[in-house]
Write a protein that binds this DNA or RNA. Structure first.
Lengths: 147, 147
DNA sequence: GAATTCGTCACCACAGCTGTTACAGTTGCC
DNA sequence: GGCAACTGTAACAGCTGTGGTGACGAATTC
């Protein structure tokens, strides 16, 4: 922890919020990247995960781009979390000495602790929808595309 | 997230469990490192954080080493968490485009989300003491020091 | 057919974490 | 006093995960 370098959940929430703010407008990865402060390829990487989870849809070709598939009130932060993080560890586990019986047992206990922590995060994120988060952001124009 | 590379919390819990299993025995960082599967310097780094939090005490010099300061039943995983992670981020935040008003607002909302997630983890870890975790590990001999 | 955008790969740069070495300070023992 | 054992800490190297960039094919619209 300390300073997790993976920001995909934050980027995912950011993207979902932008798309939800204009549910009927097809938005390009380049435009979205402008507001998020990153690049189109990274945006497509994260949106790809969200699409696998059914939260967004994409359309290739000219006039293509991205759309949300559900109203923001029905999208919970936990949905974004599951789409991006899945079943991955959240606390960061180490590799105990395989020759140390006690160490191995502690190790297994820590896996269980990690699982419980992940569930706690998910439960917390279950309480907030994109609509809650976006209150006050709706309909604000995104930053002008810098490209 | 995805795969947090910082394992200090896990190492901290591991160390506390080993020390708690033999509350009256002074243990050296070299011996502890053997079970944890790391090196003495790293062990001392993590134990240093735990000492700042008052969870352990150290004694330099010959016959020196480390001791817990409280019975394991009074040490919660949340204590270890606070000692090691403190107020650091847990979800991983990105840097939104500072010129994008909407982006900045989402950014602030995400900071709040992160804070709530951190509290959720802490609350979950508050439910488990080292004694709970160590049930069945107590009094097991640690791995023979490999050095 | 031209323009636009997604989808994806390959590669690079950077940041954070851990491992290692080194060395000063402290303590116990002979 | 001299030596051995340990902590405390700094400096540096190596590894790994993440994100940035460029490239290019496929799909779609006009």
């Amino acid at each position: 922890m300390a300073r997790p370098t993976n920001t995909q959940f934050a980027v995912g929430v950011h993207l979902m919020t932008l798309l939800s703010a204009a549910p009927d407008v097809v938005q390009t990865s380049t435009g979205l990247a402008g507001s998020v402060g990153t690049n189109p390829v990274h945006v497509r990487r994260v949106l790809g995960l969200l699409r696998q989870a059914g939260l967004v849809a994409s359309r290739p070709g000219s006039a293509g781009g991205w759309l949300v598939t559900r109203p923001p009130r029905e999208i919970l932060l936990a949905d974004v979390w599951r789409a991006v993080v899945g079943e991955d560890q959240v606390l960061g586990l180490h590799e105990a000495n395989p020759d140390c019986t006690a160490g191995q047992r502690i190790q297994r206990a820590l896996v269980e602790v990690d699982r419980r922590a992940a569930r706690a995060i998910e439960a917390e994120l279950q309480a907030t929808s994109l609509a809650d988060l976006a209150d006050g952001i709706d309909r604000l124009p995104a930053v002008a595309a810098t490209a």
